[in-house]
């Protein structure tokens, strides 16, 4: 970006090939992502507001005498997802480090580890549901189950989208679409993944801690 502010068109028509990202492009992409996450914070905030309002209607919390989702599994899922976020973030940052040999390899290794941990979280989440369903509790059983299944479903949908973004970033990096020169997609996917993790943290606190 030149600072005189006058950007000339190249020749008669616009240029047709994608040049490397500039710092300005990265700020644009990150700003867009931050706005998106702000928006989605309101969406999940709405769900948490509903959770808090409705939880008040349940006399004993957590409800007594019925099968509840397993807190140890949920705790493990929380740790796995946190670890996944750490690896994804380190992978994303490895792209912006100064040039050096082995940088790309370290990106792939970190990123794949993060992805696998994310997949592990998804499996643990499925286990939580499966356990409850085996005990005969489904979303139609009552208000507690409505809240638990409803909120975790919406969250799980975002886990699936997040995993898809992580895979897309990995494939893109293998194909040379993304790399140190063009890394906005990778860092935005990481941002989204952290957001998914933070939402889960609140779900965990709401259902299993407080």
């Amino acid at each position: 970006m030149n600072t005189t502010g006058v950007i000339e068109l190249h020749g008669d028509g616009p240029v047709n090939q994608a040049p490397p990202e500039t710092g300005r492009d990265r700020v644009n992409a990150t700003l867009g992502m931050i706005l998106f996450i702000g928006s989605w914070t309101m969406a999940f905030g709405t769900l948490f507001l509903s959770f808090l309002v409705l939880r008040d209607k349940i006399a004993v919390w957590p409800p007594a005498g019925i099968a509840l989702p397993s807190a140890p599994i949920a705790g493990l899922a929380t740790l796995v997802l946190a670890a996944s976020s750490v690896f994804v973030e380190r992978g994303s940052r490895s792209l912006s480090l100064d040039a050096g040999s082995g940088r790309k390899a370290s990106f792939s290794a970190l990123w794949i580890t993060g992805m696998l941990l994310g997949l592990g979280f998804a499996l643990l989440q499925a286990w939580l549901w499966y356990d409850l369903i085996l005990a005969g509790r489904t979303q139609t059983s009552g208000l507690y189950e409505s809240l638990f299944f409803g909120l975790t479903w919406v969250h799980a949908a975002h886990v699936v989208v997040g995993l898809f973004l992580l895979v897309w970033a990995l494939v893109g990096s293998k194909l040379g679409r993304y790399g140190p020169e063009r890394r906005s997609f990778v860092s935005n996917a990481a941002l989204f993944w952290h957001f998914v993790g933070i939402v889960w943290l609140f779900l965990f606190l709401g259902f299993f801690v407080f």
Partner: peptide, 18 residues
């Protein structure tokens, strides 16, 4: 899906509702 966020009593089971 039969949850009961907005329904005063669960339609399916008659349990606590929203």
């Amino acid at each position: 899906f039969g949850t009961s966020f907005y329904v005063p009593a669960s339609i399916m089971s008659g349990g606590t509702g929203g």
